[in-house]
Design a binder for these strands. Structure first.
Length: 456
DNA sequence: GTCACACAAACACTCCAGTT
DNA sequence: AACTGGAGTGTTTGTGTGAC
């Protein structure tokens, strides 16, 4: 959804000390706007977020990821002039174990690329700054241990410390984002999620273009907003909605009376119904088919999400037929390959609209999330089974009378009650959310701390 | 065995042109 | 004006080679 207009000085800028507006829960944006200027304030100066490479410089997704991983490590350390980080975790995180050439290339880019920030703050104060993202890096091998000795420029170091802390989960999600723009929007969104107004800073279209692409624009190439919106903004917003706990909404500002969009801003909120997707009966069927073919519980959700129930079911059938012929040695591996390459479809006319088969890659964030959700469902079921009859009936009646359920679910609740897998999942999911709150970063991190064994 | 370098395929991005 | 397809270009990633 796109908002036409929003308040002009709706949020503080990045580097100033102007307080965020304090919003009050339950107030509409209009009401909140009318409250502007009231004394309740929240200081949250944040530097180093909206950085724009200059002089045709650019930072790739990989460069930024390495930088984020480094600052996440640094955020856990006491402030110092230089920081000493073990290389191995960095390289594993970057999927570049033993690949010093690649890490070095990225460190060079972080050291070489000048970034700029430019903020008008409040009334008279304006800040312009230029820096690189790291001022020095050394890889030191001393016997068996290999350390990265790193120094940050002063302003960046200050900003990094004040930047909303990046959790390990934030970074796992960040690594899985496909586009550079999504990664850049994500780190901005994470920093502004806790802003009471839920509004990011407001910048011109071209500033956002450079901030999100992580590259300065060739001045000879004209920036066309409609392309930017289609190719850069919308995919990035969509990716964040799908992959993270955040809902991001674009606000387009136009000149008074004009039609051209001149400035942009985003609204960032945690999802009301976090990452859990609506249960589709076809998906449940596909999941149960995969399970019966011997696939591990942890890998099933990702496969269903990626390839869809229809493709899975036809390849399950195909694999079962091959199995009957005696040509398949390991059904689990064969089925996975069959789904990825869509064996069942080969030899027929391939539907061009089928999703592209992507390379399979274990996704730690997904695995952790999947196990967390499964664990919650199991625990909720245990609690339910231990309730007195009176208690359990009260729970069930509350769930059964909830509004807003999909029609399929309502029918299943009436017809089959808890004996329907669809209803069972929805009910225990509802109970888990009621008991422990929504699945979000905080609860997931707490789960990972308490149950490290679940993540082996 | 480790590392730098090179190459290529897969994937992502940019931007133009054609269609609705 | 809004939408869509796709060619051309840049980035990421997997793999091979040779020096040490």
């Amino acid at each position: 959804m796109v908002r036409k207009r929003a308040p002009d000085e709706a949020t503080s800028s990045l580097f100033d000390d102007t307080p965020f507006e304090q919003s009050e829960p339950g107030l509409s944006p209009v009401q909140q706007r009318s409250n502007k200027g009231k004394p309740s304030i929240l200081h949250q100066p944040m530097q180093s977020i909206a950085i724009r490479p200059v002089d045709r410089g650019s930072l790739t997704k990989g460069d930024l990821l390495l930088w984020l991983k480094i600052i996440q490590e640094i955020q856990q350390m006491t402030p110092a002039r230089s920081y000493s980080l073990p290389m191995r975790p960095l390289m594993i995180f970057m999927n570049n174990e033993r690949r010093y050439d690649r890490i070095k290339t990225q460190l060079r880019a972080l050291n070489r690329t000048q970034v700029e920030w430019n903020n008008s703050t409040g009334k008279d104060k304006e800040v312009w700054g230029v820096s690189t993202l790291i001022s020095q890096a050394e890889i030191i091998k001393d016997g068996g241990t290999i350390m990265l000795e790193i120094e940050l420029p002063g302003t960046v170091d200050k900003g990094v410390r004040e930047l909303t802390q990046f959790s390990a989960i934030n970074l796992l999600l960040a690594r899985e984002l496909h586009s550079t723009a999504a990664l850049n929007l994500y780190r901005i969104a994470v920093a502004y999620e806790t802003n009471p107004s839920h509004l990011t800073f407001k910048r011109t279209v071209s500033e956002w273009d450079e901030i999100l692409r992580g590259a300065s624009r060739d001045p000879t190439k004209e920036l066309v907003y409609k392309y930017m919106k289609r190719d850069l903004l919308q995919p990035a917003i969509e990716e964040l909605k799908q992959m993270t706990h955040l809902d991001v909404e674009l606000i387009e500002h136009r000149e008074r009376g004009g039609r051209a969009v001149t400035h942009l801003q985003f609204i960032v909120k945690a999802k009301a119904q976090p990452v859990v997707k609506t249960v589709d009966p076809a998906d449940l069927l596909a999941k149960s088919a995969l399970k019966s073919m011997g696939l591990r519980a942890a890998e099933i959700p990702a496969i269903v999400d990626q390839y869809g129930a229809e493709r899975i079911m036809r390849n399950v059938e195909y694999t079962q037929a091959e199995l009957a012929k005696g040509t398949v040695r390991t059904p689990r591996a064969y089925l996975k390959r069959a789904i990825i390459d869509d064996y069942a479809q080969q030899g027929e006319v391939i539907d061009a609209k089928l999703p592209k088969a992507k390379k399979e890659k274990p996704n730690m964030a997904d695995v952790a999330l999947g196990r967390f959700k499964a664990w919650r469902l199991e625990e909720a079921e245990k609690i339910f089974m231990e309730m007195t009859r009176k208690q359990s009936e009260a729970e069930w009646n509350e769930f059964a009378n909830l509004d807003g359920k999909a029609a399929t679910l309502v029918r299943a609740v009436k017809a089959k009650g808890l004996s329907s897998p669809l209803v069972k999942q929805a009910f225990f999911d509802w109970m888990a959310t009621k008991t422990w709150g929504p699945v979000n970063n905080d609860t997931l991190i707490a789960f990972m701390r308490e149950h490290p064994d679940q993540l082996q």
